[in-house]
Design a binder for these strands. Structure first.
Length: 194
DNA sequence: CGGCAGATACGCT
DNA sequence: GCGTATCTGCCGT
């Protein structure tokens, strides 16, 4: 793994807040050549191996196999019949854990992201896990992708100050609702729900 | 704006 | 079969 992504080998609940402020850079093919879509991570959720809300909690299956692999890879899953969500695998090999990326703040290629989102604008482009996957054109084909390589890279940024981060319970799950493993950047308007 | 139902397919029991 | 780490549109205020 890339040296500056070494922190991903830690526990999901420590990696999740550390990912806030880091960026995802997606390169895509266009009629003219290529384009770059880039966004800042503003909201994450941790999912651990012994966590009833995590897909990995019941052990390895073909779908969750990627979560048990080395850190720094992408776990993309499909849900509700029409949505993709993307996660960054964390922890050592053999440990099934990941961090769900819940929302981004667009930094580059906003016009293309908006077009991918049925011409929606503003926060509606990326303020939700399935929305940002649509905006960045992330689907099943990127499951298992190495985040140090094109066409999707994780760019490390300095860790935020503790005071800039809010920690609360996770959203949209039915199991282990009380576990406070959701993290977001304070006062950022792209956070999915306040 | 806030609440609710519907869409839709996949993995797992 | 069934539940799901969601979003959207439509309804009501």
């Amino acid at each position: 793994m890339n040296d500056n992504l070494g922190f991903l080998g830690g526990p999901a609940d420590e990696v999740a807040p550390r990912l806030l402020g880091c960026e995802l850079e997606r390169t895509i093919e266009t009629p003219d050549g290529s384009a770059t879509l880039r966004g800042r991570i503003v909201e994450t959720e941790a999912y651990g191996q012994t966590d009833a809300a995590s897909h990995s909690c019941k052990g390895r299956t073909p779908r969750t196999e990627i979560m048990f692999g080395p850190a720094g890879f992408l776990y993309v899953y499909f849900t509700y019949g029409m949505h993709y969500c993307c996660n960054i695998v964390t922890g050592p090999p053999g440990h099934g854990a990941a961090v769900l990326i819940r929302s981004l703040e667009p930094l580059e290629g906003v016009g293309i992201m908006s077009a991918n989102r049925k011409d929606r604008s503003g926060v509606a482009v990326t303020n939700g896990p399935a929305k940002l996957c649509q905006a960045l054109m992330i689907d099943k084909r990127l499951n298992g992708h190495n985040l140090t390589t094109a066409p999707l890279k994780l760019i490390t940024r300095p860790a935020l100050q503790q005071v800039e981060i809010v920690q609360t319970t996770r959203i949209g799950i039915s199991q282990a609702k009380d576990v406070p493993w959701r993290f977001y950047i304070k006062d950022n308007s792209y956070v999915s729900k306040f």
